Simulated assay, not measured.
Amino acid sequence: MDLDAYVLDRAGEWDRMEQLARRRRLSAAEADELVMLYQRAATHLSVLRRRSPDPVVLADLSRQLMAGRAAINRGQGFVWRSIPRFFLRTFPAQLYAARHWWITLGILLMIAGSTLTWYINAYPQVLAPFLSEQQITDLVGGDFVGYYSQYRPQNFAGQVWTNNAVLTAQCIAAGVLILPVFYLLGVNLLNISITGGVLFGNGAGGTFLTYLAPHGLLELTCVFIGAAVGLRIGWAWIAPGPSRTRRQALTDRARSGMLIAVGLVPVLAIAGALEAYLTPSTLPPAARIGLGAVVWLAFLAYALLLGRAAQARGVPDDSARYELPQV
């Protein structure tokens, strides 16, 4: 191969790519041109490395490619207008697409939790391995109610938000292994059921519901969603479907799971605020539960009604905008 002729024939494209890379703003046509030139220059570099490894030419072209790559990455910066689209279209559509998983899991867990609470209430002797008599007395006497007001509301809201976000993230991340999700759910289900069983068994069932329902409806729903999405990811590599490989199915479900995880962050913040401000407030129990129920129903409407509408309109897949060209 005649190196000089090859370089001379293509140097104009490389220079043009470098010129475009130096510009702060590009039109749509110029951005497309930059991507095309980057792809072609990468191919040229590959050819030169195989056939004529001249270090000077390779270094110069590599520098120009790095400038082009940096310019392409620079165009992937954060866009504020993507936030409304995410929360009005992408996030609810993803929730709606996974609705069968989290609704089914939520119903099953609620049945299991209610059954376990009833069993502990009916057979209090099973509490012996978990709580001492003094701990039961303290729990009924004020520890349960005092838990919600022992810290300043803003600090407690942040703590609750963090704990629930970590639990939800753990469920999503561990979903590919499946079994850890059931362990995480089981531990939390057992803790809630033990508390409920103790309080119901000592005539404080109303207190239990009053201090759990205002925030628990939304909070537990978020946990159910996180766990269901994690299990959905795990199921993707077990049963990917007839038209996808296991890798494709796992990638699709994992991308969906990450979108839902991001969307749940502000929802869990709302749940944390309810637990810190509404649950221990001086409002009548019916008002506290009613307000919590209204917020919960609003979220369900957001996930199911707005999600169905968003899915019907079609949610654009913008992932290609954030990937480098393949060469």
Rank of each mutant, 00 (worst) to 15 (best):
F224S: 04
V176I: 15
T195H: 08
L220S: 13
L131H: 09
T117C: 07
I225S: 04
D138N: 13
N155S: 14
G158M: 13
L109E: 08
V198I: 10
N188F: 09
L218S: 12
I194S: 05
F130A: 14
H215R: 02
V166N: 10
A213T: 09
T210Q: 12
S193P: 07
E219M: 08
A204C: 08
F208S: 01
S193A: 15
V140Y: 02
P124W: 02
P153F: 00
V181W: 01
G158Q: 06
A204Y: 08
P242A: 15
L217A: 04
Q135R: 13
W161L: 11
G203T: 13
M110Y: 05
N164Y: 01
V229S: 04
G175S: 09
I238P: 01
L185W: 02
D138T: 09
P153E: 02
Y211H: 11
F224K: 02
G175R: 03
A169P: 10
I225C: 04
N163R: 15
D138W: 04
N164H: 08
H215W: 03
C171N: 14
T162P: 00
E219H: 10
R232S: 11
N155G: 12
V160N: 01
F200G: 07
I238D: 04
N155R: 13
W235P: 01
N164K: 07
V198S: 03
L139N: 03
L218T: 13
V166F: 14
T115L: 15
F130K: 06
S132Q: 09
Y147T: 08
R232A: 10
G141D: 05
V223Q: 08
P124Q: 06
Y123M: 09
C171K: 06
G234P: 01
R152H: 12
A122D: 15
T137A: 15
V229L: 06
A173V: 15
L109A: 12
A213H: 00
D138K: 05
G113S: 15
G226V: 09
L218G: 11
M110W: 08
A112E: 03
Q159K: 14
G146R: 13
L212T: 14
L177W: 14
G201P: 02
A169M: 10
A173F: 13
G141L: 04
T117I: 10
E219D: 11
L139E: 01
V181C: 00
V229F: 05
S193N: 10
L218I: 11
G201T: 07
A228Q: 05
G142Y: 05
L209E: 06
D143T: 12
T221H: 04
G205H: 07
